[in-house]
Design a protein around this nucleic acid. Sequence first.
DNA 1: TCAATAGTGTCTGTTAGACATTATGGA
DNA 2: TCCATAATGTCTAACAGACACTATTGA
Lengths: 194, 194
Amino acid sequence: MLLQRSARRTWRLPGAPLHAASSMDDLSAALTRSVVGREAAWREQSGALTSGTHPDGAALSITYAVIVPRGAAETSDGTWHTIGRLPRGLASRHGSAVTAAVAHVRSRMDESPIAFRLLPAAFTLGELQEVYELLLNRRLHKASFRRALSSARLVEPTDEWRSEGRGRPAQFFRYVQRRHARVARSLRFDLLGG
Amino acid sequence: MLLQRSARRTWRLPGAPLHAASSMDDLSAALTRSVVGREAAWREQSGALTSGTHPDGAALSITYAVIVPRGAAETSDGTWHTIGRLPRGLASRHGSAVTAAVAHVRSRMDESPIAFRLLPAAFTLGELQEVYELLLNRRLHKASFRRALSSARLVEPTDEWRSEGRGRPAQFFRYVQRRHARVARSLRFDLLGG
DNA sequence: TCAATAGTGTCTGTTAGACATTATGGA
DNA sequence: TCCATAATGTCTAACAGACACTATTGA
């Protein structure tokens, strides 16, 4: 996550005041460009806060979850931090906003091609799995990952192979939009409780 | 869903202006009380809109998904409508807000005990399944539903039985909070695409 | 005894995860 | 030939859904 220094050894999430003339979505896009110097790979509104005080005399804050590719150059006073390790000096409601944004991204991964927007048009299955593991924050089983991909017909192979390093070359794939979504078979209460 | 008549044969979602003094959450709770005359069984912020115009000169609108038990008496000008059949005269962004709220509820059902808050402390498994089917908008398999419940140790039987009607009496159960959530085994891309 | 509703036992197809194996390149 | 990495085949445990069955009440 990208945080900015504010006064007195504290961190804050990047933000900007919304004026009546512009839409929330346009502002979020502009803020992304100004902070990381490029378009977001993926961006969705993930929450809103009214408690506490807000910058620029605003009555509330709207939070967006924004994903940019690895290697996006930070500009101005932004610094990248590891998700899951909220630094000291980050206001607790900013921390909650980060937690909510991460949960939002993970819950949307099954319906939105987030991972593919973080990769070039052609990618290897190993790279794709890396992105999924990064976003979901857990290891995935290689064979299962490929079987699920294949069953969903989500990617298709290209004629290109990566020839670098020592081992067997990896085939490049590209993203293919599905036409019809299957009905998911699931009846789970695993996560419910506590 | 509960809609209110506005001018010229149009429908709108219930709403209220947020003033600086109150929090969004308090306002949502108060609005619920004023419209349906009781506390919400479950209530979470589900979206925000800035495009278009907003009541009372506001710059944006925050939407909450609010669930109340069946039989909540509507007050003032509210009328209950079936979800999935957006009536003519409902502004399209209000329709989008409803769709988003429904999706939000369904995505939260695995992590939040929504269904149990719609039932009295003691309930039969048939009643519980009815609530799940209503909220998820799909039929569930009776044996699978009970197996999943049992495996999750989400409910426990009481000594009470319902004795009414003709058939075998149904046992009453109560909700039990789980201590530890199991790790869900899932790797699905079924819904991804389009 | 019959009808109606609640609850359970068993089978099967699907599939996530484990494990081992093959495939293919460079050193 | 050996090593490293990619890709795949097979087995198993878990489990959702189907189906049939038992259990228990009132009419």
